[in-house]
Every structure is written in C-alpha cells, then in structure tokens.
Nucleic acid binder design. Sequence first.
DNA 1: CTGGATCCTCAACGATACTG
DNA 2: CAGTATCGTTGAGGATCCAG
Lengths: 222, 222
Amino acid sequence: MTNQHYGQFCGLARAAEIVGQRWTLLILRDLSVGPRRYSELVAGLPGIPTNTLATRLKELEDEGLVARTVPPAGERSVVYALTPRGEEVRPALDALSRFGAGGMRSPREGEIVTSASITAALRVAAGEGEVPEDWDTVYGVRVGDIEAHVIMRDGRITVGEGPAERPDLVITAGPQIRDVMAGELDPPTAVATGVVQLEGDASLFDRFAETLRVPYSEHVPA
Amino acid sequence: MTNQHYGQFCGLARAAEIVGQRWTLLILRDLSVGPRRYSELVAGLPGIPTNTLATRLKELEDEGLVARTVPPAGERSVVYALTPRGEEVRPALDALSRFGAGGMRSPREGEIVTSASITAALRVAAGEGEVPEDWDTVYGVRVGDIEAHVIMRDGRITVGEGPAERPDLVITAGPQIRDVMAGELDPPTAVATGVVQLEGDASLFDRFAETLRVPYSEHVPA
DNA sequence: CTGGATCCTCAACGATACTG
DNA sequence: CAGTATCGTTGAGGATCCAG
C-alpha cells in the first residue's frame, strides 16, 4: 500500500506515484470509457490478479480519482467511476495512448483487443472531434466480438461502447484497421484485400478513415 | 528485464509497459530537459538505486527512446539523450505533469526541487509559449540553489536550465512560487509577504505570473 | 453470482558494496 | 565515472476460498 514516493516536489513525480503503479493506467482507461463493476474490470483486464485490482481501486479511491458507488437499496452491485478529479487524467491518458500507438505495428503474440481498448483508441483518434456541421453519420465498429460506435453529428464526434443503433455503416475488421487510421493503408485497398468488411453505405468509409487518425511514429527503430 | 506485458493491442497498454516501470518517467523527464551523463542522472534522481538506473537506461535504449553517445577519442563520458522517438513522449510527460501538478499543494516532508523538475515545470507552465511579438524579457528563477531561466522573445517562450545571462529580473523563491503560478497568490502579495524576492525590474513579475500558469485542480479532496 | 480476502511463490525492486 | 555484483525486501502473479 505504501506507494513509491519519489521525494520530489514535482507534478510529474506526483503523477508517477499514481500511474506508475502496475495496472493503474489500464484501470483508469477502462473507467474513462465508462463506470464499471468489479467483475467487469476483471473481465476487461485479463491477467490482473484480483487482489491487485482491489488494492489499486482502494488507492485510486484514496487519491480521489475513483469513487465507489454502493447501490442504495436493492443490493445490486458496487460500481466504480471516475470522479471529477479522475476525469482530469484523461488528457494524460490520451497523450500516452497516442505515444504508445505511434510505436505499435501489428499485435504481438497473444495480444487481444478489449471493449475499452477499442473505444479509447477511437476516442483518441477522434481528437478534438471537429467535423462539418452537416455530417450526420453513425458508424458501428466490430473487432472480433467487440463492438463500438462512432457518431459524427452537429459538428462533433462521439465515441461509445457497444453496438450502434441504426448505423449507416458497420465496419468489421481485425487489428489491421489501425493501418487505415495510420494512413498506411488506403481505404479502397483495405476493402479490396478484405482487411475490412463493410455493411451499409460503403461510401462513408472514406470519411471514417480520413477523420479518425492515429499516425504511426516515423521514428520506430526495428 | 522482462517488462510487464499487458497482452492488449492498445496504445495505452504499450505506453504503460514503458512508463509504468519505476523511475522511468523521471528519467525521461530529466532527459527531456537535456542530455545527461550517468552521474548527472544519479544526482538528479535522489534515491534511485544505481542498478535500477542502469537497467532502465538499457530498456529505454532497447525501446529506441534513448541513445547513449560514447565519446569518440579522449575518453570523457557517456552521454544519454532522447532520440527522435523519445522526443515523442514529451506531450505525454507534459500532460502527466499538468495532472500531477493540479493535485499538488505544498511540498511533503522531505520533498525537494531539482534542476530538471523546476525546468520541466516552467516549460509546462509556458504551454504553447505564445506571447506578444514585442516582448523581450529574460527571467532567472532561483529555488534553493537551483536556477533556471525563462526567455520571452520573438513571440515565443524558451525555458532552460542554469542561470540566465543578463536577466532583466531574477526571481528567488521557495516552492510556494507554485501558488503564484496557480493564480492562488497574486504577485503583489507574494512580494509583500516575502514569498518571492525580486532583483531587477520588478515590474516584469506580473508578466511572469500571468504568462506561466499551471492551475490547481478544483477537485482535490482533502 | 458478484465482490472481494487469503495464501504462497517468485520476479522485480531497493540498498549497499565493489570493480574496470 | 560508469556501471556490475550481491543480497534482502517487497510487491505482483496465480490459485483458491469466503461472505453477502
């Protein structure tokens, strides 16, 4: 429980004392996508020891980043969510995601995609989320049995978990969808080679590819 | 040396595998301020075990974030510096600094300020560094026996380590200087109460205080 | 069935000493 | 100065168990 203290009066050092703990960044990522129950966190973080999760949640609660909501009457389930202070970590999560994504080519052996990871990735790719006012498009994105949705409407982009309702276009793909978002694989080729499958108005895929962007780093070594 | 692998094809997970290691964020912070020799890193990171530093440097080199430059002939000293890929972590460091600084009030028992920490803090506070074109001001900032400098010139802000050459104003203060940068302590009061001492054109202090800003979080619990 | 607590093992970390 | 070697300690990993 005694977190590492770096002994420096420094914002980064203080941040490191929190997010430098193992699993903490991924817990925050999952919670940044939406409130979660304990078992949902376990499911979204394959490999996390249950005691580690319990410890981390307690630490994050002590730090004021996470609040556990005990349901009032009919005892259903404890729900964990980011507090307002916890929301302030988002820009850092996004910057780290962007950095990490820059060095990410294809999945390593055994690497998976989770609901939170794809949703967070799409949110980062959306960036500030400015699009023309007259766009009104709903996308569904499926990777494996995971599904997320992207809505471009009223000049803004909204990203969420789960299937879209009445999507204009459903995009089904593997992790290689990243090559499209990195600009390394142009949409027609992606479709032609079967990297992505489209259901619905296929002409909307170009818009998706050009709007959601997380570039590869130009400086990855091997 | 087998870093933690989270098994997820996710930018944040990949980033976490690197910066989630102990001390790594602070090593990157120090290197982001400027190239460093091994002993300088040790000096700037009080408490770091020497073997941990050696291990981290090797890991960061393997990741392509840090390059060690062995001096050519007259054997002087190995120098570590960020690579272009390493530079890409800056936005994440800044976002984390900002987050951590938001929760930072006064120093905890025994916390110190280092050259890299103050320089990094000023750099983050400078933000994008846009100032009016006609400003031409050189500040020296002293905290304890540490000194950094801030130059506002040609519409930009430059922050660096070490004393300023021919400063217009030298600001000497303790860690409470943060209250000024957070907007919680107005400049006249800071001067009047002796929180900061000024040498030079004291009228330039207002400009310093309004330009360099790292706000406190409104949501820190206790 | 959810939300943990407990136990044990081992790899990583921390402290110190020592060397090219 | 720039690390390596050694060793004790801590925290993570993994399985299991328990309470509401």
